[in-house]
Design a protein around this nucleic acid. Structure first.
Lengths: 208, 208
DNA sequence: GACGATACGGATAGGCCACTCCGTTTGTCC
DNA sequence: GGACAAACGGAGTGGCCTATCCGTATCGTC
């Protein structure tokens, strides 16, 4: 909770108490609003929902895009954290799919997370790509562990893994309200990533 | 509302020659622009690119949303058509995956198509859901044929199939410029939909 | 509790965009 | 080829949205 997420270095002066609280609340609310209404949601709405003036929003985040970026970074950081936790708590064979499920469960709502991962992949800003890099490292470890354990097809690599997560998020978003279909869609992707039982340890799949 | 959209039926008065051409060109251009810049693209840009005044756009499509809807319907119609063609040209075992690839190849560019399918699934307007219904029928036939032929897992149903197409579009969009990764991501989904070689004809998968 | 610095809030500027009005052009039919 | 309706073009309008200015309130420190 504490986690003054903005890098604690950069010689930034200690923020005043209320400012600190407002900033945190803004990030919270912004994440919710962006998640619900998409990036097109107006800054005014976020301000209203966070019970601050618009000026306060722009004081903390010089631009709307900067706010979006900050929300993004927070998400990526949390995700990387949870990935690391899973790796130490479960064995490598389980951690990978646990993370897969966690990602998909975490954002049952809308597309914001997909956008987050998407942007991370494309490496937008410095901060974002910093957090994105951390997450990517976790993904590498998870994937490698699962492949060594023989539970994930060997030909899978990180770039497409990111895309698969993004795409599957979209699938589930689209199946919101149809839990049975969502379960099956998820199973399709999960099974597709699984090492083929027949081809023990070999390349991923016999043909195309 | 009545929706004087593309089909020359519904007793709509015969359009003047130039009007007809403009309308067609507008749809063409709008599809391209929406596909490239997203739904946020300005109507003015579409008008400019189509070499007509803005008023002409709004004369043919009373609202921006109506224009988007018309583009959508066109896409869905074309897709259903191609699905039907595939069904008669190839055997049922091949048609399903051929359609899968066709959908994914057809929109290598951006998200517009995904949005199309997505909206179709949720059934937005009357016209859209009409076209959407036609496409859904094709999907039913394709899926059923492939399942009878034993090449697609039995537990797959149409709702998640739509979502899978949408989500996979997004995957590939995200992997634009990385053809190898895109190929593997596509393989993951395709293999996930395939009937498991071990479980012959049975339910889709042993567990969760 | 008082003072300086820091942060806040609301009114507002400025830009973009969907949509309209009306004078002008173009197609169609005789 | 002429007349009438249909369609066109583009300037204009109103609304929304990002971003800023400045007077006011709050924090932190003595």
């Amino acid at each position: 909770m504490t986690t003054d997420q903005t890098p604690p270095d950069t010689g930034t002066k200690p923020l005043r108490a209320d400012a600190r609280r407002n900033r945190a609340r803004l990030l919270e609310v912004a994440e919710a609003v962006f998640t619900e209404r998409g990036t097109g949601a107006s800054t005014e709405e976020i301000a209203r929902e966070a019970k601050v003036g618009i000026a306060t929003v722009f004081r903390h985040f010089p631009t709307k895009e900067a706010l979006w970026e900050a929300v993004l970074v927070r998400r990526l950081q949390r995700l990387a954290e949870e990935g690391r936790r899973l790796m130490t708590e479960s064995g490598p064979a389980h951690a990978f799919f646990a993370f897969f499920d966690l990602v998909l469960d975490q954002s049952p709502v809308k597309n914001a997370f997909a956008a987050a991962l998407a942007d991370a992949g494309v490496d937008v800003r410095a901060a974002t790509s910093e957090a994105g890099r951390a997450l990517r490292e976790v993904l590498v470890a998870l994937l490698d562990g699962a492949q060594r354990a023989g539970v994930v097809r060997r030909d899978l690599e990180v770039p497409e893994l990111t895309a698969i997560l993004v795409g599957t998020c979209r699938m589930l978003e689209h199946l919101d309200g149809h839990p049975e279909s969502a379960k099956r869609a998820r199973a399709v992707v999960r099974d597709g990533m699984r090492a083929h039982p027949g081809s023990r340890g070999g390349r991923g799949r016999p043909h195309s």
